[in-house]
């Protein structure tokens, strides 16, 4: 009986410990000593997804570049398309020991489409880190040799072409909407719960297109028709929209934020650590193996990119009737 009690209590302790106690930075600490303890990295998405995966690799890679013995502990704060995680980051103690990653969904899309409890421009931007490809994928035996033929087919069959994306307001959905607006196409986006479901729908013939990354492509099943962003190492064989004279094009990125009012020296220290990690050939190799490319921009540039995307996405969501009263 004692054993059982001890077992249960021990297990509970173990889990509490594993859960990680965050945001308890030593008070009154000199910024010069930063970091003197482990840093918690909020990932506002569920474990297993692409952003989670990338964040974990970056967290591991940056450890050698931080002064001192500190490591970075990933904590998933999923929910609401990253709104839950960013709200938690907004309210975290601004001491640099709690930072978070974000994609444009959290800082540029959601503030347009929902009442969020944070200000999209209010975070301390640390750096932009990486970009990933976003590809319109079609079945291996699809009749279109290239994007031009696809446009021709879609023009000839208005309202018939259906593609799956990972949710209303997702980067893939908004880019396809922008593309449709630019080329005056009539296509139907079908929302799915996640990448797995929309890939199944493509392979089973329910849809004729899927938005995904190179990791979703296997030559015997499907192929990338057009890259909706920029060419990065590993995706050279897939043409980008610009090759066809289209000006739409979005680079999905992952950036790093700190809570508002995090001291500047601390933000700078974090920026330096991530910057040097992204310049480390070993890290670059790891990222490129995952079809991610370093996309370093400093905090000010990152801030400007957020501002610009917030405006651009606002225009699309206004058009789609998705915007919220601001």
């Amino acid at each position: 009986m004692k054993k059982i009690t001890a077992l249960v209590a021990g297990a509970a302790l173990f889990l509490t410990a594993c859960g990680g106690t965050s945001g308890s930075g030593a008070s009154g600490e000199d910024a010069a000593d930063f970091p003197s303890q482990n840093i918690t990295l909020y990932v506002p998405y569920a474990p297993g997804g692409a952003t989670d995966r990338t964040s974990r690799i970056l967290a591991e890679a940056v450890e050698g570049h931080l002064p001192g013995e500190s490591s970075i502990v990933v904590e998933n704060r999923a929910g609401g398309g990253s709104v839950v995680g960013l709200s938690a980051l907004w309210n975290a103690k601004p001491d640099g020991y709690t930072i978070g990653v974000t994609m444009e969904t959290g800082v540029a899309t959601k503030p347009n489409t929902e009442q969020v409890t944070y200000e999209y421009a209010g975070f301390e931007e640390i750096a932009l880190l990486v970009q990933s490809p976003q590809i319109l994928i079609v079945a291996a035996d699809a009749p279109w040799a290239d994007f031009d033929e696809w446009v021709e087919y879609v023009r000839a069959n208005p309202g018939k072409y259906k593609y799956g994306h990972s949710g209303i307001g997702s980067i893939g959905h908004l880019t396809m909407e922008a593309l449709s607006a630019e080329l005056d196409l009539d296509i139907v986006g079908v929302p799915f719960g996640g990448g797995g479901e929309s890939k199944q729908a493509l392979l089973s013939g329910q849809t004729e297109g899927d938005i995904g990354s190179t990791a979703d492509i296997d030559p015997s099943l499907n192929r990338g028709l057009v890259n909706l962003g920029e060419t990065i190492p590993g995706t050279e064989d897939i043409p980008v929209l610009a090759d066809f004279g289209v000006s739409t094009g979005v680079v999905p990125w992952i950036g790093l934020l700190a809570p508002p009012e995090t001291p500047e020296p601390v933000v700078d220290a974090l920026n330096a650590a991530f910057k040097s990690a992204l310049e480390d050939p070993a890290t670059v190799e790891k990222l490129e193996a995952l079809d991610l490319a370093p996309y370093y921009h400093d905090g000010d540039e990152f801030e400007a990119i957020i501002e610009q995307r917030y405006e651009e996405i606002g225009a699309i969501t206004d058009e789609l009737g998705l915007s919220v009263d601001k």
Partner: peptide, 12 residues
Amino acid sequence: SLGIPGSPSVAI
């Protein structure tokens, strides 16, 4: 067979 993760656990 297809590279499709059908659940959060399989996605991990």
